[in-house]
């Protein structure tokens, strides 16, 4: 009934990688942002596959609902003349070196991953209910939650302060 998990995972991985690679290659910033939204949705699908639906919904709410909006807004505010103006890589040499560096990083990571042999471990953990997550957040992780709240409030105020126009001393008087 439920399809075997591995092909599903492979499909999700292929889709996420394809959209991410396309997003990083496209020259139109808005196209990149929209494609990256798709990548974030596929990451949410991955969380669903891994059995953490709460995480998947949080990912969609935050990334699709908030971060993508802020990014698109910033794109529109900072490209006054033509939002579709392409952004090229700084130079061919730079693009090549970037590809080489990231390719090298991937090679090292992939080598490390493939070295690792799975140990026959416990059966996969049960899907955590929202109640478990809530109990953990209100119990052992309470200070982490509070600190995150403080950070978010501080960044919200800070972002508003940074982005609000600077009041220049009035020169006309």
């Amino acid at each position: 009934m439920i399809p075997p998990p591995l092909p599903v995972l492979a499909a999700i991985a292929a889709a996420a990688l394809l959209t991410a690679a396309l997003a990083m290659m496209l020259r139109n910033l808005i196209h990149s942002a929209l494609l990256l939204v798709l990548t974030w949705v596929f990451v949410a699908f991955f969380y669903l596959w891994a059995g953490a639906p709460f995480l998947a919904f949080a990912q969609v709410v935050v990334y699709v609902g908030a971060i993508s909006m802020v990014v698109l807004f910033a794109v529109l505010l900072t490209r006054r003349h033509d939002p579709a103006k392409p952004t090229r890589p700084a130079s061919l040499a730079r693009a090549c070196s970037a590809l080489a560096v990231s390719g090298g990083a991937f090679a090292v990571l992939a080598w490390a991953v493939l070295q690792w042999r799975p140990v026959p471990g416990n059966p996969p953990p049960a899907e955590p209910s929202v109640a478990t997550l809530g109990a953990a957040l209100a119990g052992p992780q309470l200070h982490a939650l509070l600190i995150t709240g403080v950070i978010l409030t501080a960044t919200l105020i800070g972002a508003a302060l940074i982005a609000s126009p600077v009041e220049k001393p009035d020169s006309s008087q």
């Binding site: 991410a20 970037a98 990571l109």
Partner: peptide, 22 residues
Amino acid sequence: PLHLCLLLSAALFCAGLAGVLS
């Protein structure tokens, strides 16, 4: 499956890295 997950994550990370650097 864990190998596949980790490879996916590594590939996504490197795609982001290439984008930032270029």
